[in-house]
Amino acid sequence: MFLGSSFASSKESLTSSFASSSDVADLTIANAVFDEIYSTVNLTPITETDFKIPAIWGFDTRLHALFQDNLYGGNVSFTESIVESIRIKKKVNGDKKFKTIYEKSITSNEDFEIELMDYYEPVGTVEYAYVPVISGGENSYITNRIESFFDSYFICEKDISYPMILDTGFEKKLTQKTSLIELLGREKPVILKGGRVRYYTGDVSCTFIELTKDGWQTHTSWDYRNGIYNFLTNGKPKILKDYFGNIYMVAVTSGDISEESDHYEHVNTKFSVTECGSAYDPGDLYDNGFINADIDR
């Protein structure tokens, strides 16, 4: 304090104080004819003489309004007041259409933010689309694509996946029903295919040890295995996929989850699975609780 004035920032301070660096929450423009306004957190030096507003929206862009007959300032031309819900759609190799894997209703602006893990994608090119639903109809798609790859088997459920890396085996067979009838007066038998039955069954074996960034957690593998056994016996269908591109919706069908061991920290687990649906079919995925949207059945 100096003669009733302080140096710290206040109405009575002697020095001109700095401005606040608090966050900016709103922006108002007025009293001119505006062409374009732009806000970014990527600092551009003021000395830059030929500064131009970038045409492309970037990760740092916070606002960019062009006033082309509207007042939109974001990177999309919709707001929470008109969008009923957002759908995430997926298309993998071989699909002819995008299939909805997730739907979220929109009540506030924050609801547009989506963070999602998709565990049910095979190896290969996968396309995703972000689709706003406006008055019941799907608006323009925002799409992106990615090359999906991984290098082990995975067994997963909604929001959880276990890699199968060590001593992994998956011996499968494809089942169908046929019968053979030998008729009198006919040299060759008649083969009948009974029904549409066609599914895979298989025996899975794997040494389950957790791999963290510190390496293989062999000492705690008993606990990790117990967790996996709870997962395998919870009665819910699983997605089993390999690193070639196969993906199956399976249920654990063996009566026993058996273990073979030549060392107390090297335990090989065995169980059997049977295909119970199509991992590509949104109807099957929904019915078995893998996805929350039942739109593209």
Partner: peptide, 14 residues
């Protein structure tokens, strides 16, 4: 994780 992480970078303001 054998998964694809999907994140939206949507800025919707009017």
């Amino acid at each position: 994780l054998g998964a694809i992480e999907i994140k939206s970078n949507i800025t919707s303001t009017v």
